[in-house]
Amino acid sequence: MIQPILEIRNLHARVGEREILRGVDLTVYPGQVHAIMGPNGSGKSTLAAVLAGREDYQVTEGEVLFDGKNLLELSPEDRAREGLFLAFQYPVEIPGVSTATFLKTALNELRKHRGQSPLDAMEFMELMRERAALVNIDPAFFSRSLNEGFSGGEKKRNEIFQLAMLEPRLAILDETDSGLDIDALRIVADGVNALRTPDRAFVVITHYQRLLNYIVPDIVHVLYRGRIIKSGTKELALELEAKGYDWIKDEAEVEA
């Protein structure tokens, strides 16, 4: 039997006094793409942040297994080293630190964790060029300060490029489509599709169905008020697009 990459069981999390996740259950197997949709404020980005280990959030109940290990007891950097990658909704700018320097540091930390020797400068440059071609990114980015002065689309592409470089087991894309025009969206989606493999999984968080035309999900979940209230095939996304979220909210209210 195939072991899931990610198993979330009854996850509750809060910021200060406010409970945002109220019992999330989710199981992701290798090779799968899961889409998590939901109206604003339903807890989508909180789920991503909790999985990545942001300290502002407090987990009050439930558990998360990542490749069978207890994810919640790992530091953010150890989660990353174990193969969890978060593509940020708002990637930060780091003045003076080039994309190349940043990624080299990150990649070699990962390699150290896996017991591999660090890549030297030549090997690293080669890998950068190869992966840049894969996700269609201009190598001119490498020497620019990380995300500094990048457009919204460039920042998102840079996230996908980092994904390609770091080769995670599980990639969480947090509203990667927000702020992108249709061309940028297609480039980002093509990058993601190029990186789909049988042993890697994706969790795509989005507010709109649009992205899912390009990254076709295996399963679509609707998150509402901190719980997954409905799951289905990619047709569910289309239905949501057509009808909005209200009918699902009503269903949820009735059930509750």
Binding site: G53, E77, A80, F102, L166
Partner: peptide, 10 residues
């Protein structure tokens, strides 16, 4: 946090 998420310790 961004750096941590890429596997880089503080």
């Amino acid at each position: 946090f961004y750096c941590n998420q890429r596997g880089i310790d503080t």
